[in-house]
């Protein structure tokens, strides 16, 4: 654990180069001066939230393109165990309905809050997940990049106990470390056990990712989608989220039938009911 740092991923990278970052080791920063998201987008990182880097093993889904939804599914599972019902926006953003909205399927863009994000970086043979969770604060919409997908929100729990625990921990701001550290430790333990004791390495993770998959059964728009069978193409497409394939691709049901995509930015399509394809 560190105090202020440039970014937990940088520290993980430095540790790895010195051979000090075994698989499943993690780095937790209390704040970051240069937190980053995908493509070096800035990730606002004031004190109070979780900014962690977790070294993943080089096997199972983590050796494939499926790494992102796999760690997304594990993270969602761990957060559920802690009482936070997050959903997984394929491949690995963590969403919750805005406070006060109903649980379950996310209705639309305006009602969703992004409460956490995961960035996977493979550097010198080590795959490290940078994990940011908004525990205490979330950036204001005005500070987000243009054409952002979802407003940011703070993670919350419908279970009083869990919410109280976090509120109580938040109240005791004097020692952010005392609050963040145990929570992160529990999350990592849960992620690890869930991974390590899954008897069926090929099949556990799509099930897990699908269990928490956001917009399942909803109509979505996928910009710059990369079809699994034509990896050089980037096309816009629309369809109903069906699930995740073992290769990590998003399965969409569209007018053309079932299709799977390896990449693209996903947005819920508003105003239209799911079309009936059957």
């Amino acid at each position: 654990m560190t105090g202020a740092a440039s970014s937990s991923l940088d520290i993980a990278s430095a540790l790895h180069e010195r051979g000090l970052l075994p698989e499943w080791a993690s780095v937790l920063c209390l704040s970051q001066s240069a937190g980053r998201g995908q493509m070096r987008r800035a990730w606002a990182s004031p004190e109070g939230n979780i900014y962690a880097a977790l070294r993943l093993p080089d096997s199972g889904p983590f050796a494939t393109f499926a790494a992102a939804p796999a760690i997304g599914g594990l993270m969602a599972e761990a957060l559920h165990c802690e009482g936070f019902p997050v959903l997984l926006k394929w491949p690995n953003d963590l969403l919750q309905p805005a406070e006060g909205m109903a649980e379950g399927l996310l209705p639309g863009r305006d009602e969703c809050r992004k409460v956490g994000g995961i960035l996977l970086e493979e550097r010198r043979g080590a795959l490290v997940a940078g994990i940011g969770l908004n525990i205490a604060s979330a950036p204001d919409s005005s500070t987000l990049r243009d054409n952002y997908a979802f407003s940011a929100g703070i993670i919350h729990s419908p279970q009083k106990a869990a919410q109280n625990r976090i509120n109580c921990e938040k109240a005791n701001k004097s020692s952010a470390s005392e609050m963040i550290f145990p929570l992160w430790k529990r999350l990592v333990e849960r992620i690890f056990s869930c991974y390590a004791y899954s008897s069926d390495p090929a099949l556990w993770w799509p099930a897990l990712a699908e269990k928490y998959l956001a917009f399942r059964g909803c109509r979505v728009f996928l910009a710059d989608a990369c079809p699994e069978d034509d990896t050089m193409a980037r096309v816009p497409c629309e369809g109903i989220v069906d699930g995740v394939t073992p290769s990590g691709a998003l399965r969409l049901r569209s007018e053309h039938g079932m299709e799977s995509y390896l990449g693209g930015s996903l947005l819920p399509r508003q105003g239209k009911p799911p079309f009936s394809g059957e």
């Binding site: 995908q38 499926a66 790494a67 939804p69 491949p91 690995n92 995961i118 996977l120 493979e122 795959l127």
Partner: peptide, 10 residues
């Protein structure tokens, strides 16, 4: 970048 996984090449 593939599937939100960034691979550095050296």
């Amino acid at each position: 970048s593939i599937m939100k996984q960034e691979k550095a090449v050296y």
